[in-house]
Design a protein around this nucleic acid. Structure first.
Lengths: 119, 119
DNA sequence: TTTAATACATCGTTATACAATGTATTATTT
DNA sequence: AAATAATACATTGTATAACGATGTATTAAA
């Protein structure tokens, strides 16, 4: 009976979990640009930043390809910074184009959110 | 010179256009459930409803597979309704499980949106 | 000495929006 | 009357992107 209950719960959460992933797909580039707009970060640091300040949990296999995409679109640039000890860090900076895109994205999201309020 | 300008503009919008698609990917199931929560619809009608009330433009090849998915997850049920003339219409209704998921989704979105405000 | 944490990266799988295409019926235009 | 558009259903193939799994290398902690 207990395991049956767990089973039912998991079934129900399956949809929500999947949906959450898809929602993230859309919002993640926005949150990344926004985070880097406030302060330059290196990839590994960004994962923590997103978790702490936005509550979004992403893995390295999500964040690194995303950063590469944003670089290819020229919304970001990067700079290697060597450390006193350990592996050098790859810091990412938002470009002017990145900033203008960020504003546009924010406008889009706010427009959509208003439509939710209307109901 | 003119065409160069157009070219540059399109380049810039390429990212935003793609991003918009990804954002839609996450929000569409929510908007569909919300629309059907207010009033039952048939597929073709839902496309118009989404455009008119939410401003989201989707094609039939997006909406029909989505409705099938939501049925499989038991968030929707359907009922064929014959017309005086023409092809019978497949009306979709939200289930109790659909309603509870809709609430959960709304909560998730609102949580995320708050985090945007914090900046 | 081993394990965990930091920091980079890639590959394969899965989910899903969308263009293209198809079928069938009715309404409108030529 | 014939051709076109609109309505209404549906499927197939392609492209995008998150994520698990895996890999390399360095440093800190157990």
């Amino acid at each position: 009976m207990y395991y049956f209950f767990i089973y039912i719960c998991n079934m129900k959460n399956e949809f929500l979990k999947n949906w959450d992933t898809q929602l993230k797909k859309g919002l993640l580039p926005f949150f990344v640009l926004q985070a880097l707009n406030q302060k330059e970060c290196y990839g590994y640091e960004l994962i923590q930043t997103l978790k702490d300040s936005v509550g979004i949990e992403v893995t390295e296999s999500t964040i690194y390809p995303l950063l590469i995409r944003l670089m290819k679109d020229e919304l970001l640039i990067h700079k290697w910074v060597e450390q006193q000890s350990g592996i050098p860090r790859k810091y990412y900076f938002i470009t002017e184009e990145g900033k203008s895109n960020l504003l546009e994205m924010k406008k889009n999201i706010e427009e959509m959110m208003q439509k939710i309020e209307i109901k």
